[in-house]
Computed example of a mutant assay.
Amino acid sequence: MTVTKKELIDTITQELSATGTPISKTQVAAVLDQFGAVATRAFNRGFDVPLPGLGKLKPAERAARSGRNPATGYPMEIPAKRLIKFVEAKALSATLNP
């Protein structure tokens, strides 16, 4: 099951209201959108992006390699590329694997 952006916004809004920090859904949506923009800039500069309580997102490089075209079976070169890796926090790992 996937949590949609709307469900995420609704849940954050409800939980903050329950703890005495009322905030509107529009404000939560703006924060999430801005987080994406800030994270993109950080990745482009080679920085990690922390996700408190979850872990961190780290930019990484995948080297060029040779592989096979799954449709034809012919060899092909797969170019190098940049990607994002998630490194989970110890607390999250302990929760998932008690």
Rank of each mutant, 00 (worst) to 15 (best):
K5E: 03
K5A: 03
K6R: 14
K6S: 10
L8G: 01
D10C: 03
D10Q: 09
I12Q: 00
I12M: 06
I12E: 00
T13V: 05
Q14C: 03
S17P: 01
A18S: 13
T19V: 13
T19R: 15
T19L: 04
G20T: 08
G20M: 03
G20Y: 00
P22H: 02
P22M: 02
P22S: 10
P22I: 01
I23D: 00
S24M: 01
S24D: 01
K25P: 02
K25D: 01
K25M: 04
T26E: 06
T26Y: 03
T26L: 03
Q27S: 13
Q27I: 06
Q27T: 11
Q27E: 12
V28K: 01
A29D: 13
A29H: 01
A29R: 08
A30D: 13
L32E: 10
L32P: 07
L32V: 13
D33R: 11
D33Y: 06
Q34M: 11
Q34N: 13
F35H: 03
G36C: 14
A37K: 15
A37T: 15
V38H: 04
A39Y: 00
T40P: 00
T40E: 12
T40D: 10
A42H: 00
A42K: 04
F43D: 01
F43C: 08
F43T: 04
N44H: 12
N44W: 02
F47P: 02
F47R: 15
F47G: 09
D48C: 08
D48V: 10
D48W: 01
P50K: 13
L51N: 07
L51F: 13
G53L: 12
G53D: 09
K56N: 10
K58H: 08
K58F: 03
K58D: 04
A60K: 12
A60E: 05
E61S: 11
E61T: 15
E61W: 06
R62I: 14
R62A: 13
A64Q: 12
A64E: 11
R65I: 14
R65W: 09
R65F: 09
G67D: 08
R68D: 10
R68N: 07
R68Q: 11
R68F: 15
N69S: 13
N69D: 12
N69I: 12
N69R: 14
P70T: 12
A71C: 04
T72F: 04
T72H: 02
T72K: 02
T72S: 10
G73Y: 06
G73Q: 06
Y74H: 07
Y74A: 09
Y74E: 12
P75W: 01
P75D: 09
P75F: 09
M76I: 15
M76D: 05
